[in-house]
Design a protein around this nucleic acid. Structure first.
Lengths: 205, 205
DNA sequence: TGAGTGACCAATATGTATTATGGTCACAAA
DNA sequence: TTTGTGACCATAATACATATTGGTCACTCA
């Protein structure tokens, strides 16, 4: 569903190589079915038809493979959120859609690909690079919507942009951070609408 | 530091009995030092000078003892928060103080009594009664402050009280729920002030 | 009658011997 | 040079026998 988008980190050997993609594909499949822990590097090697040692020509560790898969998951979420934001023009509506899409994407991952969710979760716990990019993306998206809204006159302009951005980021955190999300699943129905409304009230000029 | 305030749940045998208090005291001490898991019921029995079987005349399980200790921790937090709220008159300031006190109390528990924090944490995870009372207390406190602020004209009155209450509760959640708190320790400095400010902006008439 | 207990059981935790796994490297074939 | 591997090692996971622990109950002694 996702072609490896960018090498990013912890790659090794030929960057653009068919076998690398095969490994990623096999890993995605195996991790999704059996989970990260239960999948051995030998399993992946067998799946792509090469020896275990060959895997290590492309990835410097099993975790590096996990990070790649994790990055793909997070990329997918980012793409969906971006699409939701771009689908409308009004900044308040952008903000509502953003939070809605964010929650929906995360929940889908949680309920439909629990095993992959666990990887993302431990990635967040270990502060893997991909999760930092993800957090940055969220914060940047918020900031951009705020700037748009301030230009259009939809949002107040007194509070420093960084402060507002940071505060909204904090509020949204339990909706997109896997570690927090799993402890508030019971509130995920009401959260997006309640929170957007409150945030938007706080932004009124 | 806390005399067993109310029997509440899962008690057994004589409700008001010296030995019960001794058990609670011993349990608090042991749990604080060695943690819930590492403390055996026999340890507690030895500490109070009776046999293990006698412990079970007062508590129906080891977990029931844990719940008692947990309830005491949460009671302490509630007392502190209540004091912080009552210390000032202006509703906006009440709200600021409430969140500040909440975060400080929780962090103190986390950093100074890690072992007890773990109990509270697993209590939240297992939805033990004491944590439900705690959550109710938070929500009720928010609601009361909101009502006061609406009467005094400090807060807007258009949004349904329940909706605002719920939304603020959701926002504060990562600050007082042990399961969420431990994943956002890096943001606990800025969180109270940023969040209070945003919330108060959203409440302006 | 009620305070208090030792002996006992099922289930969980712990220590340990063994296996499986992540990871490397020298080397081979193409 | 590039593609690819089997043999190898240290560490982590597993499996299993043993020891602890949570919890009960019949019973004793004021």
């Amino acid at each position: 569903m996702n072609k490896t988008p960018a090498p990013k980190v912890s790659a090794r050997g030929p960057v653009d190589h068919e076998v690398r993609d095969q490994i990623v594909a096999a890993a995605t499949e195996h991790f999704r079915f059996y989970g990260y822990e239960k999948t051995t590097v030998s399993d992946l090697a067998r799946a792509v038809g090469f020896s275990k040692a060959y895997i290590y020509k492309f990835f410097e560790s099993k975790q590096a493979i996990g990070e790649m898969i994790c990055a793909n998951c997070l990329d997918e979420i980012q793409t969906e959120v971006k699409a939701a934001i771009d689908a409308v023009d009004s900044p308040p509506e952008k903000l509502r859609r953003m939070l809605k899409a964010l929650v929906e994407s995360c929940l889908r991952l949680f309920f439909q690909d629990r095993r992959l969710y666990e990887i993302v979760s431990s990635a967040a716990s270990g502060r893997w690079p991909a999760t930092l990019v993800y957090e940055d993306f969220i914060e940047q998206s918020i900031r951009e919507i705020l700037q748009l809204g301030r230009q259009s006159g939809d949002f107040e302009r007194k509070t420093p942009l960084d402060e507002t951005t940071r505060a909204i980021h904090l509020i949204m955190r339990p909706c997109f951070n896997p570690l927090l999300l799993q402890h508030g699943l019971d509130t995920t129905d009401e959260a997006p609408v309640l929170l957007s409304s409150l945030i938007l009230r706080s932004l009124s000029p």
